[in-house]
Design a protein around this nucleic acid. Structure first.
Lengths: 148, 148
DNA sequence: TAAATACCTATTGACATAGTAGGTAAATAA
DNA sequence: TTATTTACCTACTATGTCAATAGGTATTTA
């Protein structure tokens, strides 16, 4: 499953913010852009999506930046995906009424309904906190450098 | 998860063909287009994708049309999706090397890798035949009208 | 007061989607 | 043989989304 860079960058950004605000400080777009090698200007359009969804808080001005609105283990991946893209976890349209022989409704309900449920259940079951922990485990060496 | 009409129509078409060629005959684009209410001209661009993937066979000329290349229970949904779209079951790119602090690789491997595996495993596990049976069960009344 | 920050809007080039349109080749039925 | 039906191929178009780039505004802090 291939997703847009908007989603990719958004996930990278909130993960980066979660990591680097653990000490209580804020994380600026400049920092995120540099660490993650993302266009800062493009990031400036993506982060407000996460803020509008209530996942991160912004602080303007010098020493400002972003931090999580709530603990990382209270944010599930589905929250992040829905903030960044309205189609990934969306259902396929099921026609109200269908003529005999028409298969659209059946396919969208039976097939895509199940696929979407698997996807959605997983995205709702994994928290950002769990994801961070998993990534830490995978890259113990490097991560120890800047994780508290 | 929302997909393109190309994928939606392609799934409808191969399902329709599977159903209506059970007696040994062929199914023309005209028939599929009428039954499924799809633009015939657009269908004519989609069905060759399924043929090139070896899932259906074409017969030109009068009384021609399409039929399955092999039994419906030997075709898995993943085959159909891959024939119609190269991104649905594709993996996200994982960078060769990454600087410290970069998260792209971790996210694409840990997160999208797992999501893709769930998706892919399911699509490989369900055959077109099973899907047909399931749809039949769900719509017993209408389906009995034209299923052998 | 100056600098740094978030934030907003407009613009752009590239690409994909969802068709429409017209024509060609092959197979069949008459 | 001939007309018709079919698959198939190519080109075109309108629309929308993506992935930025660019410039400017408001706010906060040092």
């Amino acid at each position: 499953m291939r997703v847009s860079t908007r989603v990719e960058y958004g996930l990278m950004a909130i993960t980066d913010i979660a990591l680097h605000s653990e000490n209580g400080g804020s994380v600026s777009t400049t920092e995120v852009a540099e660490r993650q090698k993302i266009s800062q200007k493009y990031l400036e359009q993506i982060l407000p999506l996460l803020r509008q969804a209530g996942l991160i808080k912004a602080q303007k001005g010098l020493r400002g930046g972003y931090r999580l609105s709530r603990p990382a283990n209270k944010i599930v991946i589905a929250d992040v995906l829905n903030a960044l893209d309205d189609s990934i976890l969306a259902e396929m349209e099921i026609p109200e009424e269908e003529e005999d022989g028409a298969l659209r409704g059946c396919i969208n309900e039976c097939l895509w309904g199940k696929i979407n449920k698997k996807l959605s259940d997983y995205a709702k079951s994994v928290t950002l906190g769990e994801f961070l922990a998993e990534c830490r485990e995978k890259n113990t060496v490097e991560w120890d450098l800047y994780v508290i």
